[in-house]
């Protein structure tokens, strides 16, 4: 993913995927609830673009972006959301709990903080086995107030575990402004434990890559965990039922001016001389790909209840 255009393509894939999920939800083809990653693409793509084979990632219930950033098949992910047997988890997981072991996605966790615990444990394996791999936990700003956050950051630091904690601060804990429910600065918490901590523009994929590279290097070197706070914003509600009425006037428009795709387009033109038409072509290719993905997904069979499933491995 060294090619800057690949970063753009991956972010566009996530945005178009999420737009498609929203549309399929409204048509009744995606069930339950969804939490979309739209607006936060640079965070997941920037971090995952710096990982190696063998590294492990734990995402959240807002995890479609984490999965796609890691290279999970859009077809398998869409099929999972459509509840089909051909889904990444055979239709048993749905939107919030996707696992794709092959791509290093140890799981997306439907309960706030679960990703931190899972990545901490995965890092324990890497340390005890001396694999040289790292584990990454993605989580939101609201997670800073969970027990998982405090317990795992402390344990990871005293054990010098190779884990990178990525706090995607989108300013809102569900419907509530994060400052209303959080004492002090989130980044001050890992710093108090002596964990190297960076705050970065989470809508600038190149800035995220640079900061993630440093954090991952630190973890991989055996010196213990690192913490990255990516400052970002979600362009949609917390979940499918949330119109986002709590937003401050003008806030959404201001952030849309800093859309990670817009920023990436600008950077690609300025630093790599990529013509906008080339990027328009990528947009069109991705849109076409998603149309095919949905068509195939809607044609795929649902899982057979008679096939059952085994409670135990």
């Amino acid at each position: 993913m060294a090619d800057a255009r690949d970063l753009y393509r991956r972010m566009r894939l996530i945005r178009t995927f999420e737009d498609t999920v929203q549309s399929q939800f409204q048509q009744g083809n995606v069930h339950g609830t969804t939490h979309l990653y739209s607006g936060q693409e640079a965070s997941g793509v920037g971090v995952c673009s710096m990982l190696r084979d063998g590294d492990k990632v734990a995402g959240t219930y807002r995890g479609h972006g984490h999965a796609l950033a890691l290279g999970v098949s859009p077809q398998k992910l869409m099929d999972e959301l459509l509840g089909r047997a051909s889904g990444a988890c055979g239709g048993r997981a749905g939107s919030m709990n996707v696992v794709d072991v092959e791509h290093g996605l140890i799981g997306c966790f439907g309960i706030v903080g679960g990703s931190i615990g899972a990545a901490t444990g995965a890092a324990l394996t890497q340390k005890l086995r001396g694999t040289g791999a790292v584990a990454v936990a993605f989580f939101g700003d609201g997670t800073a107030n969970q027990a998982y956050f405090h317990e795992c950051l402390n344990w990871a630091q005293v054990e010098r575990l190779p884990v990178v904690f990525v706090c995607e601060n989108n300013l809102y804990m569900e419907f509530t402004p994060i400052e209303a429910v959080t004492a002090g600065a989130i980044a001050a918490r890992p710093m108090a434990m002596g964990i190297p901590t960076q705050k970065v523009d989470g809508n600038d994929v190149f800035a995220v890559r640079e900061a993630a590279g440093e954090a991952i290097d630190h973890a991989r070197s055996g010196r213990g965990p690192a913490f990255l706070e990516t400052l970002t914003y979600r362009f949609v509600g917390h979940s499918r039922s949330d119109p986002g009425r709590y937003r401050k006037p003008g806030e959404l428009d201001a952030w849309k001016g800093r859309d990670p795709l817009v920023l990436a387009r600008r950077a690609l033109a300025e630093h790599w001389g990529v013509e906008p038409e080339r990027l328009d072509e990528i947009d069109a290719e991705v849109a076409g790909e998603l149309e095919e993905v949905v068509a195939r997904g809607l044609a795929a069979p649902f899982p057979d209840p008679a096939a059952g499933g085994r409670e135990f491995a």
């Binding site: 615990g117 899972a118 444990g121 995965a122 005890l128 584990a135 027990a147 317990e151």
Partner: peptide, 15 residues
């Protein structure tokens, strides 16, 4: 909580 999650994360990655 961290210990149980640590055991979980370790278990699903090979320990």
């Amino acid at each position: 909580l961290a210990l149980a999650a640590g055991a979980f994360g370790a278990a699903v990655t090979g320990l």
